[in-house]
Design a protein around this nucleic acid. Structure first.
Lengths: 358, 358
DNA sequence: CTGTTAGCGCATTCAT
DNA sequence: ATGAATGCGCTAACAG
């Protein structure tokens, strides 16, 4: 029923080995023979058997891209960019040549699912794995990840981090592109302080994630440098943790405004959270930025369309994803030391302004 | 170097077949034996060889999810939901049991890449393929797709459409979940007409996509039912096509406003385009909705946070994606006739209002 | 319930 | 430049 290499060989009147050689193209074959084989392939509508091929060659053309939440454009943009570099432009025939199969795996932010996907990719003898976004910092999970990644690397799978800090153990097994979340967070809060804000609410992400921690650390660095937030319980009082979604931004902001009437600005963990924060501010009858300034992080596409446009920190998500894809393909050399820090750029827009006098 | 089934069998003092049986769990094995095997698996850190397994069993656990643009939450939400149903919750151990490997493939809207991905999945003997979003209506491509899908289905791959109309040929090979784009488009424009709008601009998507066509057809149905847009060139004059992105919404709206000063409302192909339209309206010094009403489609999460909140048509993307995932897994029976139409709900918000007198 | 036997379809030696 | 032979690691009959 299903046509195999041998069928093609028979029709082209050559040996299976020859067919294999023209298909893989990494071996000299006479032009006339090659044409005969290709014709037979077309005639028979032959499709390579991937598993058999992978088994015999002990490698596969699968590349996995792990993301925390594919419904979030933050990950969608990076993953799409990476996949573009990996999948290649195709040869326009739909015939599929030597391309890799770049696949996106959605962990939902769950450590277990992250490990499960790595195991699945390990089973498939994946050629490379790209891990995007912040990591969970539970020690047990970190250890399990380090062990799993070491095994993958050992089996020849290339590992690339994208927007994710390198492992504590710092194995040189991987190339890591880390966003400067701390620096971005610091500059954002410095901007607010320079506008005159003194009491700044902070809607943070889940506490166990590196991204959350780094952005918050940057925020607090800026506060401390300005001599703010040092009163007992000052910083903690103004910080609320929650998931990276709109609802969390909305509720945390309501909470902060209620508890701390003196707050004149709210910094959100990311742009999506900031949108929720904006809605909460407005629902309290307050104006942005006259009464309360609001700022986000990431500069997702919709942020410029918020009204007023959102002050935020731009992360070059597309560029980083594309670079990660190239690293995964070995099309680009790893950065020195295996780690590159990606700069974050402060984008000042309409949602932040000096606080009202009073 | 790499540990195989046989190694595990040796250590557990059983035959390879027995190990295979406990791993696959679809065959009775004595409890004591199973435990011995499992222990050996753990001791040896054994990982199944996916290609070998797939080759022997002539099936794989790969499920492909094709999307046009993974950076667009429209697709991200559907794909994430589908993947959740397919990947299963994991067993919490990261060990990976009988789960499928649900992978997202980003076609970028390119017909060639769509076919290429299908070929790649065909090679892998994918268990199922979910195709999301609108299809391109070039006859040659449609024929190629139909042929390719027929072959996939023939090889036992389950095919599911999600938010995509069934093929013209209407093979019963597939289950299709189609959004009621036409009905949604009609009701949206009816809403505007009932508010009193008479000249309505329309920023459409790329003309070759089914989604674009259906939404536009609904729009024109509503116009015609109200006796509008029947003057020569009326509808065409007010319609501009472009990609499904913000920039297109911005530029097309500027264009429409410039050419047709009498326009009092702009309908956008989707919410992202609508955001661009809003920006254009504002940059012209016009107010929403007092001067110009704006409406979108899809009801993406950010739409409720636009200011004013966007009137749009809600598509149950998450639910549809999840259902597609279940269909792909055979966890749910296909709808009668293989086709289900998913209702679209009009969401009336602040961005639409009666036009000013004049 | 468990072991034995045969391939699955292909890539890759080694010859020629 | 091509053909013949071997084995990748596993599953699926078939026995027992």
């Amino acid at each position: 029923m299903t046509v195999t290499l041998a069928d093609v060989a028979a029709r082209a009147r050559v040996s299976p080995a020859t067919v294999s050689r023209v298909l893989n193209g990494n071996y000299p074959v006479a032009v006339s023979t090659r044409e005969r084989v290709l014709r037979a392939v077309d005639d028979l509508d032959y499709v390579l058997n991937g598993p058999a091929s992978s088994l015999a060659a002990a490698t596969s053309d699968l590349v996995g891209i792990l993301v925390n939440d594919i419904a979030d454009p933050f990950f969608g943009i990076m993953a799409g960019a990476a996949q573009t570099e990996i999948g290649g432009p195709g040869d326009g025939s739909g015939r599929a040549g030597g391309e890799k199969l770049a696949v996106i795996c959605n962990t939902g932010g769950s450590p277990e699912r992250e490990l499960t996907y790595l195991t699945l990719l390990q089973r498939q003898r994946a050629a490379a794995v790209v891990l995007t976004g912040g990591a969970v910092e539970y020690p047990a999970h970190q250890a399990a990840m380090a062990a799993k990644l070491a095994k993958l690397a050992d089996a020849g799978t290339r590992i690339v981090f994208c927007g994710r800090p390198p492992l504590p153990e710092g194995d040189a097994l991987v190339a890591a592109l880390a966003f400067d979340n701390r620096g971005g967070g610091r500059r954002l809060t410095e901007h607010l302080i320079s506008l005159g804000h003194r009491r700044i609410g902070y809607v943070a992400g889940p506490p166990e994630r590196t991204t959350t921690r780094h952005r918050l650390e940057g925020h607090r660095e800026a506060l401390r440098a300005a001599g703010l937030g040092t009163e007992p319980g000052g910083e903690e009082q103004l910080t609320v943790h929650g998931p990276y979604d709109r609802r969390s931004g909305y509720e945390a902001t309501l909470d902060i405004l209620r508890r701390e009437p003196g707050v004149t600005a709210v910094v959100a963990a990311n742009d999506t959270v900031a949108l929720g924060a904006c809605a909460a501010v407005r629902d309290q009858g307050l104006r942005i930025p006259q009464d309360i300034s609001v700022a986000g992080f990431d500069d997702l596409p919709f942020s410029v369309d918020a009204v007023p446009a959102l002050t935020t920190v731009r992360l070059p998500l597309f560029e980083a994803g594309a670079r990660a894809g190239r690293l995964a393909m070995g099309k680009e050399n790893p950065p020195p030391g295996g780690i590159a820090t990606i700069a974050a750029e402060l984008m000042i827009r309409g949602s932040t302004a000096p606080p009202r006098m009073g």
